[in-house]
Simulated assay, not measured.
Amino acid sequence: MAGRPSNQKERYHQVMEAMVHCVARYGLDGATLDRIAKQAELSRPLIRHHLGNKEDMLEKLKSFVLGTFTELAHAMFDSLPDTHKSQTLIDILFVADESASADLVMAFAALTARAAEDSALQHECRDWITDFEDKIHVVLAMDHASADLQTLRIVATGITAIFFNVSSLNPLNLPDSWRLTSKQAAQTLLNSIGEK
Rank of each mutant, 00 (worst) to 15 (best):
P175D: 00
T112I: 11
M16A: 03
I162A: 15
I36Y: 00
C125I: 01
A100R: 08
R11C: 05
E124M: 04
L66Q: 04
F64E: 02
I159G: 06
L46T: 14
D82Q: 11
I92K: 10
L46K: 09
I162W: 10
K60F: 06
Y26G: 04
A18Q: 00
V138L: 04
D91Q: 14
N191H: 14
A161R: 12
N7G: 14
S168R: 15
L42R: 01
L33V: 09
I90L: 12
F108N: 01
L66P: 04
A113H: 12
R25N: 05
R179D: 05
E133W: 07
A186K: 02
D82Y: 06
E59D: 12
K85D: 02
R4C: 11
L104R: 09
F132V: 01
T68R: 11
D91K: 13
S86K: 02
K54V: 12
T157H: 13
E117I: 10
F163K: 15
A161E: 07
N191C: 08
K135Y: 09
D176T: 13
R179Y: 11
T70S: 15
G3H: 11
A40T: 04
W128V: 05
W178L: 13
L58K: 12
K54Q: 05
A31T: 05
N165E: 15
A37D: 00
F69Q: 12
I136D: 00
S79Q: 10
S43P: 03
D127A: 09
A24E: 00
L46A: 08
I162K: 14
S119F: 04
I90E: 01
I129K: 04
D143H: 06
T151W: 08
A96N: 13
F164P: 05
Y26L: 06
E59K: 14
L189K: 03
R4E: 15
L93M: 13
N191A: 13
R126T: 14
H123E: 11
P5R: 14
A110P: 00
R25C: 09
K38D: 08
L46Y: 05
A156M: 05
I36L: 01
Q87D: 09
K60L: 09
C22Y: 00
I36K: 00
V95A: 09
M142Q: 15
V15M: 01
T88Y: 10
K135P: 01
E55Q: 12
G30W: 01
F69T: 06
R35W: 07
G3T: 09
M106L: 15
L121W: 02
A109P: 04
T188S: 14
E195F: 12
S168V: 12
M106G: 03
A156D: 04
E124C: 05
I136C: 01
W178K: 13
Q14I: 04
H49E: 02
L42T: 00
F164W: 15
D118K: 05
L72T: 15
S99M: 03
A75H: 13
A75P: 04
Y12C: 08
T160I: 06
M57R: 12
T70V: 13
S99N: 07
V155Q: 06
M142L: 14
S168P: 07
D56I: 06
T32I: 06
F163A: 15
I154M: 13
P5N: 10
G3E: 08
V155Y: 08
N170K: 15
L61G: 05
Q14C: 05
M19F: 01
T32S: 07
A75G: 10
Y12G: 08
A96Q: 14
M76G: 10
L93N: 06
Y26D: 03
P171G: 07
A96G: 08
A110D: 00
C125F: 02
L172Y: 15
